[in-house]
């Protein structure tokens, strides 16, 4: 609630719009449980005096300060569990479920890339951007993984059969560590979420690709997951043109 007491103009816009939407829909759908909170936002905005020393809201905090801030893995595990349950209720099959998780991950990936580039390149005199795909894959394997999961991925491999396929391998992906997929859905990999993140980062850097996740359990690592990256033809052609120079 304290966040809403901020003097920031964005908030007044945000909350007044949410209020008006509540007003619009409340006569028609009275059974929805999420609306009663809207009036209380209103009272906070109008009624309470501004606290003298408030913590700046998340939009006003410098982005670099939260660089080392960590999120409880348990809290995330419960949240992700709910995400999967919510999604599962709304899909017809495993492919659909993976696609939805991928889409959710994509939204994370675009932001992760934005934030990482801002943090590493904004202070430099000559900001650079990856344009070749091996350094890009290394960047995802190491930096993106470290930013998202707190550790680099375990391997980066090139497919033997297909020229345009690369694999990032994680022996124990933190987000699926507590998930046991039932036998009748054994082809499901909840790491589709991670695949979505990777796809967004690649897209953002200008390497359109299709990214999927696959379970490849081994004796030693039952949670081993392969993130399979299949680049679009244009990427390979450009790469060839660049190396020919």
């Amino acid at each position: 609630m304290s966040a809403y007491a901020q003097p920031h103009p964005r908030f007044s816009v945000l909350s007044s719009s949410s209020l008006s939407s509540a007003d619009h829909s409340s006569p028609t759908s009275t059974t929805r449980f999420s609306y009663p909170s809207a009036p209380s936002i209103n009272t906070t905005l109008v009624g309470s005096p501004k606290p003298s020393a408030v913590r700046p809201n998340i939009y006003d905090r410098p982005l670099n300060k939260t660089r080392t801030a960590e999120v409880s893995s348990s809290a995330f595990a419960f949240l992700f569990s709910e995400v999967v349950q919510y999604t599962q209720k709304r899909v017809a099959g495993i492919t659909d479920l993976e696609r939805r998780l991928n889409t959710l991950g994509y939204r994370i990936g675009t932001r992760v890339l934005e934030l990482m580039v801002w943090r590493t390149e904004s202070t430099g005199k000559a900001p650079k951007r990856e344009i070749r795909f091996l350094p890009t894959l290394m960047f995802i394997h190491t930096q993106v993984w470290r930013a998202v999961f707190g550790k680099p991925a375990d391997a980066l491999e090139k497919s033997v059969e297909n020229e345009d396929e690369y694999m990032i391998i994680d022996n124990d992906p933190p987000i699926t560590r507590n998930i046991s997929v039932p036998r009748d859905m054994s082809s499901l990999s909840c790491s589709s979420y991670t695949a979505g993140i990777v796809e967004a980062v690649l897209d953002g850097l200008g390497f359109p690709a299709r990214v999927t996740a696959h379970n490849t359990p081994t004796q030693q690592y039952p949670g081993r997951t392969v993130i399979l990256i299949k680049f679009e033809k244009s990427v390979l052609e450009r790469e060839e043109a660049m190396s020919a120079k």
Binding site: A77, V83, V84, S180, V181
Partner: peptide, 23 residues
């Protein structure tokens, strides 16, 4: 707490069928 409650495929109050918990 880890292998059962954080598993999206477990229904609370129902029998536990989770490979993670077993192992």
């Amino acid at each position: 707490a880890d292998a059962v409650m954080k598993n999206p495929f477990h229904t609370p109050e129902m029998p536990i069928r989770s490979e993670g918990f077993d192992s």
